[in-house]
Design a protein around this nucleic acid. Structure first.
Length: 366
DNA sequence: AATACGGGGAC
DNA sequence: GTCCCAGTATT
């Protein structure tokens, strides 16, 4: 099946012109990005996972360091998960790192260290969905399969002048069908990358550079003057404020760390004792800190003195995190629930911490 | 179909 | 402050 019949076929000459213009533009404007130095599927894969919901400029230093330390899928498979998370620290969406590591082990054991070339087998690996499977298959193996992600959603929505919410299933179906219909018969790797590159550099969210766009004459939004209205902004969930406390419990030159459980935020990473707080009045707050620290960790603490306040966001939550320091008084760490450990301050650098955990760690070590 | 999952860049 | 980012997995 070449096309989705729910989508009216695009004119053949129009498609040819689009492909030709796009590829010519890409030949001239392709950025020199580190994951484009080769089409090694391993490097393509690592870059695609890092790039999920993460901007190119942010990924570059992480990618360089990662492939230097793990140059092959075998090296990655042989690593400890915590080492992988340590390299991922600060990049966010840590499940990506855990899935990447798990997938590396499966590629080595189930596929003899070779990447599956077809989309179905790629999608079967953890952390690889429809986009990433298409990206690896097309970019690394030049297979004729479509991709659809942030850049191309915007680009294709404008190209069609698609007026509705592109995140809904109808919009997704239409845009995937369009991405497939536009595919040339050769040069798929360049074509798919060119779509993303044009979306990223020219067909930008705000103030698209239509006068620099090689396919402006193909673009129904541009031709109708609707490029600023399309794509429609999706309905957004409003954020919820949250107050939390992080307690650095000190025992001589050690501090108490806890490894976040599966199913909670920062799964697999380590953090200081951390919980939501409700009290405002100082006396009550001290009681709450002691009580919740005891509940969560098993240890009793003295009075907690503030270190700093960090404001940050996690998905839809706007968190105000108060960091405290206090001395261990008594008790032993819980053996049930999440793994906990007394860690010497010197060794904090070896542990993968959340971004806020790392900020607190830097503050106490000096 | 909706929601959880991080953190930072750009304006 | 807000919006956005080379999405995926789970509910």
């Amino acid at each position: 099946m070449a096309t989705d019949c729910s989508q009216p076929a695009l004119d053949s000459k129009w498609k040819q012109g689009f492909r030709r213009k796009l590829l010519a533009w890409f030949a001239k404007h392709e950025r020199d990005l580190p994951w484009r130095k080769s089409r090694d599927p391993y490097r393509v894969w690592v870059s695609e996972i890092m790039l999920q919901q993460t901007q190119v400029e942010t990924v570059i230093p992480y990618f360089e360091r990662f492939v230097k330390i793990y140059p092959t899928v075998e090296k990655l498979a042989a690593a400890e998960e915590s080492e992988v998370l340590r390299l991922w620290e600060g990049l966010g969406y840590y499940r990506r790192a855990r899935s990447l590591h798990a997938a590396a082990r499966r590629i080595v054991t189930e596929h003899d260290g070779k990447f599956p070339r077809n989309v179905a087998k790629l999608k079967d690996l953890p952390g690889i969905g429809r986009y990433t499977a298409g990206a690896i298959a097309s970019i690394a193996f030049n297979q004729r399969v479509p991709i659809l992600e942030a850049n191309t959603i915007r680009l294709l929505a404008r190209l069609l002048a698609y007026p509705d919410d592109t995140s809904k299933s109808t919009g997704q179906r239409i845009l995937w069908a369009t991405a497939e219909e536009l595919l040339p018969s050769t040069e798929i790797s360049s074509f798919n990358q060119a779509l993303m590159e044009l979306g990223s550099l020219v067909c930008t969210p705000l103030n698209p550079l239509c006068d620099k766009c090689p396919v402006a004459r193909h673009c129904h939004a541009f031709l109708a003057g609707l490029q600023h209205k399309i794509p429609a902004s999706p309905s957004k969930v409003k954020s919820t404020p949250l107050r939390e406390a992080a307690i650095v419990v000190r025992k001589k030159n050690h501090v108490l760390l806890r490894q976040c459980d599966q199913g909670e935020r920062w799964a697999g990473l380590w953090d200081f004792v951390r919980f939501e707080i409700s009290s405002s009045e100082p006396r009550l707050l001290q009681r709450e800190l002691k009580q919740k620290t005891r509940e969560l960790s098993g240890v009793s603490i003295g009075s907690a003195s503030p270190i700093t306040t960090i404001k940050h966001s996690v998905t839809r939550y706007r968190i105000t995190l108060d960091g405290y320091q206090t001395d261990y008084v008594s008790g032993t760490i819980n053996q049930t629930g999440a793994l906990q450990r007394w860690v010497s301050i010197k060794k904090l650098s070896e542990y993968p911490l959340s971004s806020t955990g790392r900020k607190l760690a830097k503050l106490i070590s000096c």
